[in-house]
């Protein structure tokens, strides 16, 4: 496996039935990369929530639209050290969310809804939204903690 290379690319329909397929594939991928079980669950939760947001808010529940998900192993610089990480890019061509809708909500406010973005931010090390050429892009990064470089690896 070459460093920084594409690990997996999926083009999926914006159908909620597809979410379990992505969760299963991503769970396996994260485990193979060496993430701990809680980290695997965190990555799966974040991506599932991000896809749910695309389906509900960008495509307004239309199950026939396209979402691209790509997964790369990258290096990130943190505190002057290079660390391995998983980078996930999610792209769609749906409506762009306004910044105020991306703020999540106060957790003290006990009501249904509004938790997805909070889960994403709590689960990942980097969460970046961007929009260009009519496409929304969400970049998520999870650092592979405890990764040590060993001879022969």
């Amino acid at each position: 496996m070459s460093r920084g290379s594409l690990l997996l690319k999926i083009e999926l329909r914006s159908n909620p039935e597809m979410l379990c397929v992505v969760r299963n594939a991503l769970g396996e991928l994260a485990a193979k990369l060496g993430f701990s079980e809680p980290e695997c669950r965190a990555v799966v939760l974040a991506v599932d929530e991000a896809l749910t947001n695309i389906i509900r808010h960008a495509y307004l529940g239309d199950p026939e639209q396209s979402i691209e998900a790509s997964f790369r192993r990258i290096h990130v610089l943190r505190d002057g050290k290079s660390e391995d990480a998983l980078e996930i890019l999610l792209e769609d061509s749906g409506a762009t969310a306004s910044p105020e809708k991306m703020c999540g909500r106060a957790l003290e406010d006990v009501r249904p809804g509004g938790l997805g973005l909070h889960f994403i931010r709590k689960s990942m090390d980097t969460v970046e939204f961007s929009h260009s050429n009519g496409r929304n892009q969400l970049r998520l990064v999870k650092i592979l903690h405890g990764q040590t470089t060993q001879k022969g690896s």
């Binding site: 379990c20 799966v44 939760l45 929530e49 009501r111 249904p112 938790l115 997805g116």
Partner: peptide
Amino acid sequence: RYIDSSGVASLVEGLK
């Protein structure tokens, strides 16, 4: 096996 924010929202609705 798994619950997401929409599942949690359903539990909150049930509680309410």
